[in-house]
Design a binder for these strands. Structure first.
Length: 502
RNA sequence: GGGCUCGUGGCGCAAUGGCAGCGCAAACGACUCUUAAUCGUAAGGUUGUGGGUUCAAGUCCCACCGAGCCCA
């Protein structure tokens, strides 16, 4: 029984519509019917019934008299006095039901009259076609499964307020079928990635998401605290360093699809927590990882879209392998006619940056400037899938040096529609070099780069046991899903995107 | 962090600085093959919050809260 406070609290903000719904709930209960239902066995889904009706005439269906039991939410209701049509929605779609007082009986029809859009019911009956040809279930028995105490949004225009759609995704999912389709597709993409990797002998693993040292990427972490051990912990910003420890351990082909957390702004491409695929493959290098990346993305795209040629926000994108491969310095040379493969001092590079009004920070040396040129002038122009390789060593502290020019590394990033979609290296496996790279990162941190990486002594320790030459890859799953589902914002592929507290 | 745009019944939208309206849903009534069913009747609002200008503010100004887009 409700106490007085609870009653007050529950009804405090109720509007007229909600008061009426609550009154109907009470009337239903008074008729001896539970408004909250119980387990209900279905024989068919909405889609099953539509398929049974397809390619069958009205007469054939009547003769077959197929019996079916379904359940779903009432989405449309056309009451005609002693009969009614309604559309029930389940996870597979919508199916029309036809209810007549003379079939279900006066008592059952009295309950039906108290139902409205948004309520969830079970219905059993036979499949037939209306005179307009719509496959419909003629109901002989109706069961209320759940009474909805709030009304659905407008039945034709649905819910368009993006704030409400993100904050109350459950309502968005009820009334916007294309939203549901996007998230079903998201699940298929993630599943497709896993299957593709599993079929090739990769081992899926799970590593800690709370790190003592936040490493493996240039990003600010979220920090937290472990009370019992009284220690500072960070939510991981990458999976990299743990997976490479597993390569040292001999697991040779490993991957993890998991959530990482970066303490930065929110935009159409950034959410504080997002899903990352990382993969490491012993005895391979950058070239093998390029081949793998092409194969993986093209295959998953084919699987979910039926083609490797897709449209993204009105732009045709061709994901059919092989994709263009071009070095970062060459890509810059093509666009701004500067050749960074030439030897030059940090000061000469800084001068070029000033001339071209490229962002320049205090700690910047040659390689940072090359990267700024790339991000400023080239990145946005890479619409079709393009591997950019040969990143400066300063921004790649975990990648092997290029044997021909140690200012650059054996690293690539994949760009599609002007956005970074993947990041990969021939992994640095020299512990002495790795220690020096970490030390340079610490020096950058001193110089004011708060995204510089930290020294991870245990990771160095692991490398000292010997990590075989290894190719590694990271793919931002949310951006890949945006691309493959043609969604403009990362929030449209996250069920519950991060929102400011109301 | 900066710029622009937005916030009006449960939902979708209107309203030259001058009586806050329409549609859907919901209420009451009619209707046993409807398709956003239809027809009739009646109801629902402190216009995000707080200040200001004005005879008069949903509308103009300021601040704050929230959202979207663009930029950093």
């Amino acid at each position: 029984m409700l106490n007085d406070n609870q009653t007050t609290a529950d009804q405090h903000d109720e509007n007229e519509v909600e008061r009426v719904r609550r009154a109907k709930m009470e009337q239903i209960a008074a008729l001896g019917v539970s408004p909250w239902g119980a387990k209900f066995e279905r024989s068919h889904t909405a889609k099953d019934i539509l398929e049974l009706g397809e390619n069958r005439s009205k007469e054939e269906l009547d003769e077959l008299a197929i019996h079916a039991t379904i359940a779903g939410r009432i989405m449309l209701l056309r009451d005609q006095g002693k009969a009614a049509f309604a559309h029930l929605q389940d996870m597979t779609g919508r199916i029309q039901i036809y209810i007549r007082q003379d079939i279900i009986g006066e008592d059952a029809y009295k309950v039906w009259k108290l139902l409205e859009m948004g309520d969830i019911v079970g219905a059993t009956g036979t499949i037939f076609k209306t005179k307009t040809g719509e496959t419909t279930l003629k109901v002989v028995g109706l069961t209320l499964l759940t009474k909805a105490l709030k009304p659905l949004p407008e039945k034709y225009h649905g819910l368009t307020d993006v704030e409400v759609r993100y904050r109350q995704r459950y309502v968005d999912l009820i009334v916007n079928p294309e939203v549901r389709d996007t998230f079903i597709k998201r699940s298929k993409i993630v599943q497709g990635v896993r299957r593709w990797l599993d079929e090739r002998g990769f081992l899926e693993v799970e590593t800690p998401t709370m790190h003592v040292i936040p490493g493996g990427a240039a990003a600010r972490p979220f920090s937290t605290h472990h009370n019992a051990l009284d220690m500072q912990l960070y939510m991981r910003i990458a999976i990299e360093l743990h997976l490479k420890r597993l390569i040292v351990g001999g697991l040779e082909k490993v991957y993890e699809v998991g959530r990482v957390y970066r303490n930065e702004g929110v935009s159409t491409r950034h959410n504080p927590e997002f899903s990352l695929l990382e993969l490491y493959w012993a005895y391979t290098d950058l070239r093998d990882i390029m081949d793998l990346t092409e194969g993986l993305i093209a295959s998953v795209c084919q699987e979910v879209n039926g083609s490797t040629k897709i449209q993204y926000q009105g732009t045709a994108i061709d994901l059919t392998p092989s994709w263009r491969r071009v070095s970062m310095v060459e890509a810059i040379r093509e666009v701004v006619r500067i050749d960074f493969s030439a030897q030059m001092s940090d000061e000469e590079a800084r001068e070029l940056a000033r001339q071209h009004k490229v962002k320049l920070e205090n700690h910047y040396t040659f390689g940072h400037i090359v990267n700024e040129f790339f991000e400023t002038f080239v990145e946005g122009t890479l619409v079709q899938p393009t591997f950019i390789f040969g990143h400066p060593i300063e921004i790649s502290p975990l990648a092997k040096k290029n044997p021909d020019d140690p200012r650059f590394t054996d690293r690539f990033e994949l760009f599609i529609v002007g956005r970074e979609h993947a990041n990969a290296f021939s992994e640095l496996n020299d512990p002495i070099d790795q220690r020096e790279r970490f030390e340079k990162q610490l020096a950058e941190k001193e110089a004011g780069n708060d995204e510089a990486q930290e020294m991870d002594e245990d990771f160095i320790n692991a490398l000292m046991y010997g990590m075989p030459p290894t190719g590694g890859l990271g793919i931002g799953m949310d951006r890949l899903i945006m691309l493959l589902t043609d969604q403009p914002s990362i929030r449209d592929v996250l069920l519950f995107p991060h929102m400011r507290h109301q």
